[in-house]
Write a protein that binds this DNA or RNA. Structure first.
Lengths: 192, 192, 192, 192
DNA sequence: TATGAATGAGTCTTCATTCAT
DNA sequence: TATGAATGAAGACTCATTCAT
């Protein structure tokens, strides 16, 4: 077996792991992942030194995809919509993949160097899209990155762990986005 | 400490479990919980037949507290504020206790009868507060319970698993609440 | 509570233990025995220092009863029938009580002093009955105590652990007893 | 020792378990069995999912051997002796292996499908040998399978749990066999 | 390089026994 | 003296990881 076979195996394992983790959560066994990938456990370990590394790789791959998407949107989309489309994208991805992004965190798995880098990149990408949107008045000027991150994490986690129908997610995001838009009167409701 | 202190022991175990689970997540060991409670493992098992049952009891107790709070607010608070105050309360509780409410779900722990009942009660309490708030125009009329639940879950999970400073949580909720309030310029404006 | 109450409790525990052991075997729990006796575990331990001691007491009581019966038969019954009636009695008792006499042995429970004494008494009683029967020609003269003990143990254990209908036990004993009776031709069967 | 030696490991475990169970009874620990087999506990569990399954496998293997022997005797031995030789064989095996056949039963371990099948085969094999022996007049015609089974079980259990010298077992079986042979003076003589 | 059998530390859970009330 | 809550050692079983083939 030559290099390309090895790469193919790596991909199979990654895909199987993503599926199995989505189904069974963090407790999924390495044997099961190997079985689904159609390889032996040994092969899983050849590509990912530990279970934790396998998880990290999955998350990392996903984040890379999202970062690409963010870069693409910044160029291709209007500043008014880029931010919102990216936000929705992340949530949709969470709902689809159910990769337990934060379960990793809650399970006490340490964020390693690479992840820290990605985390920073993600913040930056989001900050860029947010700044663009605020510049053109699509997002109220008084919100800052921390709130955005909290909202994005919350929405993603809910989508990931819940079992919401697509329209519910849409309506939920609609509310969220409305909260982010600028309008005349905030704190005190109209008729109060 | 015997006989009449059995109840005290149960409480000690419950408290220790809440703490330990908050710190170490679902993987916390029963021995550790026992040690922190200052009792033997056997005592933990005398009160909670199973690790799962212990988790369930923690969640159950917390939900009961929240349900009480909901009932109290419905009577004591203005319809304009009751809903929002309850929402904030739940999130604050999640941030403080970190009891992994949803981690239970993601770990595949089945929701038992009692929990199903509580779940229904929680929906009802929230529906009541929401209806009150919508009646007096404090919440836009076009949002429904499913979205509310999704937003509440998302916000709670973020607060639970994240490490946000109090002001960040406040600002995040402010955005969320703004999204829930009625104002002139919503996606499809009323008169359009 | 005065002495007689204590005695009553001891009897209740003994009876309950006999029942529970018959139903659940050696693995029966002390709590269950206490529950059936209508007392607390502590009371069981007041009368029997260990689980083993409780077992020993049950066996001991039974053996005492059998020894009484042996003595009675030696006086009241004909020498021809005394031995056989006693043998049948022991087996019937085993079938009825299912007290796991030998399971104790197989579980590695040591035979203590008292038991050793009873064992000796049982051997002696059986030897007496056997001698009487052999003297009057009811039992073939070439069998000795060891074989008798082996046969008795085997028959008792089968009765104890099996689920034989009464007629099966009768027919089984009939065969056994025929083997013990003297007749003209032994080893080589008639038509051989 | 891998891959092709997996079968060898299974055999080692089986052998060790037979020994250890013979020595320590049902309470023997899985760790001890593993240690004696020279493998890790995990290996024991790889081959036998459960302690119970391990017991079942031991018993099953032994019964298979006995069934082979029964088949062999039916062909190779005279009808007069086949039945008796098989009976003696079973008892000797019990005395040698001390595998606690019936202790399993008394421990409340359920007889599974496979075992039920073997049980039926054993009955059949015994019935065949008995019928042969009765046809040629080597066994009295008025005994039936249930009695035979009870006698065989009793003798095996006594041999298994007791500590009888070989001559005692021989003399015990001699008595038993005499009881099974036809002779003039049985309880109700034919012509009475 | 791939395989999967082997390993054994780690964990939940049970239950005989103790002891404060 | 009776009670039953508390104890914690013991044991069955799991599963991430290793390594001989």
């Amino acid at each position: 077996m030559i290099r390309s076979d090895a790469a193919r195996n790596r991909a199979k394992v990654l895909a199987a792991a993503e599926t199995v983790l989505g189904e069974q959560g963090l407790t999924a066994r390495m044997d099961e992942i190997a079985r689904r990938a159609g390889v032996g456990v040994g092969t899983v370990y050849r590509h990912f030194a530990t279970k934790e590394a396998l998880y990290a790789a999955i998350v990392s791959a996903r984040v890379d995809l999202l970062l690409d998407e963010a870069a693409r949107l910044r160029v291709a989309a209007e500043p008014q919509t880029g931010f919102f489309r990216f936000f929705a994208q992340v949530v949709a991805d969470a709902a689809r993949k159910k990769t337990l992004t934060d379960a990793l965190h809650s399970a006490g798995i340490d964020v390693k160097a690479e992840q820290a880098g990605q985390r920073a990149q993600m913040r930056e990408a989001l900050a860029d899209l947010l700044r663009d949107a605020q510049r053109v008045g699509a997002v109220r000027p008084d919100v800052d990155l921390p709130e955005i991150l909290a909202l994005l994490r919350g929405a993603s986690m809910a989508a990931e762990t819940g079992d919401y129908a697509s329209p519910v997610i849409d309506r939920t995001l609609a509310v969220l986005f409305d909260g982010l838009r600028p309008h005349a009167l905030h704190a005190p409701p109209p008729s109060a």
